[in-house]
């Protein structure tokens, strides 16, 4: 029987969006059966349009920047978009796949995406904004799979 990996994706910034998709696609390539449960701020990663996924240097002192930017400057309008643009350029330069590419690879490799119904209701998300390949469920749905998984991570 195939090994199983269960992930919980809870963060929706550009940097934190990568680990679930990287781990899920890799595990699936290795023959694992994989499910990812997207909840709270992880849920927007299931949107058809991922252009809203951003990164901020604010509150993220470990983020390497070409030059140090004082915290008081980091909160200025446009800083988030600039940091996001810079990060995307860096990812591209180093041959790192885009989030869309990685998510598509996950789907091709039969990774199952579960969207947290409670989060959808809480933030009044419109389900038509999400990709069709996800299912909706709650914590018990996740436990059903995670309960006998070999790897289980909260990201």
């Amino acid at each position: 029987m195939a090994k199983k990996m269960a992930l919980i994706s809870t963060k929706g910034t550009l940097d934190m969006a990568y680990p679930p998709f990287i781990l899920a696609s890799t595990a699936a390539a290795l023959g694992y059966e994989v499910q990812v449960f997207f909840t709270f701020y992880g849920l927007p990663l299931l949107r058809k349009d991922l252009s809203g996924v951003k990164i901020s240097p604010l509150g993220n002192p470990a983020m390497p920047m070409p030059m140090p930017i004082p915290v008081a400057m980091q909160m200025l309008p446009g800083m988030e978009s600039m940091a996001t643009m810079m990060m995307k350029q860096k990812l591209k330069k180093h041959g790192v796949a885009t989030l869309e590419e990685l998510r598509d690879l996950c789907l091709e490799l039969d990774v199952k995406f579960i969207a947290c119904q409670m989060t959808v209701d809480l933030f009044e998300f419109d389900k038509s904004e999400f990709i069709e390949q996800c299912e909706y469920g709650g914590a018990a749905t996740f436990m059903g799979f995670a309960g006998d998984s070999d790897i289980c991570l909260f990201i």
Binding site: T26, A28, A29, G95, A97, L102, L109
Partner: peptide, 15 residues
């Protein structure tokens, strides 16, 4: 070539 983790592995699997 010029692809980063996890693409070489995932593309190998697909091939």
């Amino acid at each position: 070539r010029n692809l980063s983790c996890p693409l070489p592995i995932v593309k190998t699997k697909k091939a």
